[in-house]
């Protein structure tokens, strides 16, 4: 029995969704509405006490942390290999996943929380929101929600995240000029990881990421978008977030 607890096919939730789709592994989908704070409900905290998504439950075992789940999915199930067999390419794959998880995704996430997540919930009843924030188990997540809801990300923080993203976009473009996929000659977990963060860059950072300035990055996004696994993942989206993916259609 395999159950994935996830939100939209986006960011961390999208990472294991795409790995499972690429492997062709059937799983039970348990959608949690992040904007309704489903991930902090008592029922879900019984499954994952951190109150974070995604989480994968395989038989009676709980797996957390999206990138670690991706590596697990690739190793534990049959299907196409999503990890290169060459150790150096494997290092590149893990290097890029580390780069996205530690550096690129948090920068994009801060901007996403400030322009999308915050405004999506801000208008709700203030007492209800406060109660929802109070039950968040992790202090770091409580702070992120407070900043998003009360719009207290500083201009300096947002500018720094923007700087990191623009630097990252150039870095990705540079590597894709040299090879078709992030780790080497074949599609790997690094591409699946990165896509879920990077797919909306042409929409959210149009001045830095576009056909003129970053043609290789654009081609790479479109190639991933066209894969049947990506299409199948995208069809699981319920909000307008996923509609940004359609901009990649040729």
């Amino acid at each position: 029995m395999l159950t994935l607890y996830h939100w939209e096919p986006n960011a961390n939730s999208g990472k294991p969704m795409l790995a499972l789709k690429e492997k062709g592994v059937a799983f039970e989908s348990h959608y949690l509405d992040l904007l309704n704070f489903d991930q902090h409900s008592p029922e879900y905290l019984k499954i994952n006490p951190n109150g974070t998504i995604p989480a994968l439950v395989h038989d009676d075992l709980l797996l957390i942390e999206s990138t670690a789940i991706m590596e697990y999915v690739d190793q534990a199930f049959d299907g196409p290999q999503l990890t290169p067999s060459d150790p150096y390419e494997r290092w590149r794959m893990r290097w890029w996943m580390k780069y996205f998880d530690y550096y690129f995704a948090p920068s994009l996430s801060m901007i996403g929380w400030s322009v999308f997540v915050g405004p999506s919930v801000r208008e709700r009843d203030p007492d209800e929101l406060r109660a929802k924030i109070d039950r968040i188990p992790m202090k770091e997540r409580r702070i992120a929600w407070q900043k998003a809801i009360y719009n207290t990300f500083s201009a300096e923080e947002l500018a720094e995240s923007g700087r990191r993203l623009d630097l990252g976009i150039l870095k990705i473009e540079a590597v894709l000029t040299r090879r078709p996929w992030l780790a080497g000659e074949t599609y790997s977990l690094a591409d699946a990881n990165a896509y879920n963060t990077a797919y909306a860059l042409p929409f959210s950072r149009p001045d830095s990421c576009n056909d003129e300035k970053t043609p290789h990055l654009m081609e790479w996004l479109r190639k991933i978008y066209e894969r049947p696994a990506t299409q199948s993942m995208a069809s699981m989206g319920r909000t307008t977030l996923v509609s940004r993916m359609a901009l990649l259609a040729r």
Binding site: H58, L61, L63, E65, A68, I69, E71, Y72, Q75, A76, P87, Y88, R90, W91, R94, W95, K98
Partner: peptide, 24 residues
Amino acid sequence: VINEYLDDVFPAIPFRPANMVDRA
């Protein structure tokens, strides 16, 4: 990531659990 690389290239004394859940 270097340490995972070393474990890939020099597997004689392995430092990653064989069990995939432990590895995760």
